[in-house]
Write a protein that binds this DNA or RNA. Sequence first.
DNA 1: CAGGAAGTCAAGCATTGCTAGGATGCAGTC
DNA 2: GACTGCATCCTAGCAATGCTTGACTTCCTG
Lengths: 199, 199
Amino acid sequence: MSGINERRERERAHRHQLIITAARDLAETEGWEAVTTRRLAERVEYSQPVLYSHFNGKDAIVSAVAIDGFGELATHLRRARLAAPEPGQALRAVCRAYLDFATERPALYQAMFVLPTNLSFGSPETPPALRAGFDEFVNCFDPADERRELIAEVTWSALHGMAVLSDSGRIPPASQDARLDFLVTQFTAPPAGQPRNER
Amino acid sequence: MSGINERRERERAHRHQLIITAARDLAETEGWEAVTTRRLAERVEYSQPVLYSHFNGKDAIVSAVAIDGFGELATHLRRARLAAPEPGQALRAVCRAYLDFATERPALYQAMFVLPTNLSFGSPETPPALRAGFDEFVNCFDPADERRELIAEVTWSALHGMAVLSDSGRIPPASQDARLDFLVTQFTAPPAGQPRNER
DNA sequence: CAGGAAGTCAAGCATTGCTAGGATGCAGTC
DNA sequence: GACTGCATCCTAGCAATGCTTGACTTCCTG
C-alpha cells in the first residue's frame, strides 16, 4: 500500500513546518539566544535527534526560518507597492512596509539579515523569494534608468541600516519616519545642480 | 612602599590591554566564533579566571574591543574629513573612509555594530568616541540646516547597510564604489523639483 | 510468520562560559 | 628570621550547549 507512505510523508512535512514555526515563535518571544535544540525539541514534543532527521543542524533550522521570512517579506512589499495610490508613491510605500516588517518581527528579521548564516547569495542558490523582495525595490524606479539595480541596492542598504541601528538603539527609533521621508525625497531627486546640504 | 602597588597597577593595566588586543587579533584572523575563553586564556598565557578578574564575562571583553574600535574609527573619519581637498568633498571622503574601515577590519566592525552587545546607547553611557565618530558625519553638512543630525543618521545607516550586506555577499561587493557615488550625489542634491528616478 | 526498513528515544560526548577552592608568594610585624 | 594577612593565580569542576550513538519499537513487505 502506498497510501501509508503518503500519509507518513504528509506527517513528516507537517512536522518539518512545525519545527520551523516553533523555532520562530520561540525566538520571537524570548530571543534567539533562548532557542536551544533541547528547548525546541521539548516545544515540538519530540526528542532532539528528530530535529536532526529534518535539518542538518541548528543553523539549518534558522536558515529555514529565514527563508520563510523572505517569502513573507516579498509578499508584504509587493502588496504595499501595488496598494500605493499613485506610482510616484510606490517607493515610499515599499520602504515603509520594509521598516514595519523589521520592527514588528525583529527576531525573524534577525534570522534573515543579521545572524551568521550559510545561505549563499552569490547566484544559483539564492532563495527566489529574496530576489523577489529585492525586485520590489527595483520596480519602484524608472525602467529606463540603467542604474536602477544599483539604486535599489543603496535603498535596501539604507533601510537595513535604519532598521538595525534603530532596533539596537544606536539611532533614536522615534525619528524613523523623518529619516524615511528624507531618504525617499533625496532618492527621487535629480542629481545635484548646486549642492545644498553640504557645507 | 607605594611604588610596588603602582607597578602592580601598571602591570594590571598592561595585561588588561593585552587581553583586548589578543581577542581582537584572534577574531580578526579566525572569526569571532573562534574566540573562546579557553583559547583566549591560552593566547595571553594566563588561566581563564584571570580573564574574569579583568572583565565581567566574555561579553564585556568584546565590548571592550568594540569601544577601542570606536576610538579608531573616529580618528580615521576625522583624518579623512580634514584631508579632503575642498569642503565639498568632505562627505565623500568620510563615507569612503567608513567603508574602508569596515572592509579592512571586518571582525572589529562586527564587534562594534553587529554582535549582540549590552552597550547602552541611550544617552549617558554612550562611549564618547562613538558620538565623536558620528559627529564627523554631522560636520559634513551645512550647520544652518537644522536637519543635519537626521541627515547624518540616514547617511550612517546607508553606509552601515552597505558595509554589512556587502560583507555577507547579499549585494555584490564589487560595485561598492558606484553605490557610494550615488549615495553622496543624492544626499548633496537639492530636494526634488520633479522626480526623476521614480516611475 | 520472519526480515527489514523507518522512526524514535535515552544516554552520552566534546565544547562552551563561568566559578569555587586551594596553592603560592609577597607584603608588613613581632 | 619566623609568622600573619592579603593578593594573585591555577587546577578542577559545574551546568548548559550542539550534536551523535546505540538500542528499542513499530509496522510494512515478501
